[in-house]
């Protein structure tokens, strides 16, 4: 995390400025804010998945397994946004794509097959229970990662 003393300019090369590689989303304010929102979602999705698995897994195993998968994907995305090297950049893109695919597929299925997804998860109803942020977040994430990509490659 950024310290109060550090105010380095965003990295323009693939190598470190202020000890952090140019691929990291933590280089600029908006990237750090995005990372924070991802962190909030990682926390929220983990808490919900943990509760569902402890208390009521048998009610809707499919939905709750998906909740757990979503939580893991959000955690991976958060960690990769912070670390930011060539590899984690690619993993972050993959995570965002999985999130986008997940929220779209689960969103459609929760209308066509409500019996499977009758229990709420982060992704059901296109993320309606979470103010559609699960739908918006991967798009913003991918847009941001593409920007980082352009900046690093010059």
């Amino acid at each position: 995390m950024a310290l109060r003393t550090r105010r380095s300019a965003p990295g323009t090369t693939g190598t470190a400025t202020g000890g952090r590689p140019g691929w990291s989303a933590m280089h600029s304010g908006p990237g750090r804010a995005l990372t924070a929102v991802y962190g909030v979602f990682a926390l929220a999705a983990s808490a919900r998945a943990g509760y569902q698995i402890i208390r009521e897994f048998d009610e809707a195993p499919t939905a709750y397994t998906l909740s757990a998968v979503a939580a893991v994907v959000y955690i991976i995305a958060t960690v990769c946004l912070v670390i930011g090297n060539r590899t984690t950049h690619r993993i972050a893109i993959a995570s965002c794509l999985i999130e986008l695919l997940g929220v779209l597929v689960v969103g459609v299925l929760s209308f066509t097959h409500p019996e499977v997804f009758r229990a709420p998860s982060v992704w059901s109803g296109f993320g309606i229970g979470y103010g559609f942020i699960p739908l918006v977040l991967p798009v913003v994430g991918l847009w941001w990662l593409a920007r980082v990509d352009r900046r690093v490659r010059g």
Binding site: M1, A2, L3, R4, R7, G29, P30, R32, A33, A36, V37, V40
Partner: peptide, 15 residues
Amino acid sequence: FAELSRWGPAVVAAA
């Protein structure tokens, strides 16, 4: 506290 730009308050707003 650590963020020196406008994006610090943005994180507080989200929380």
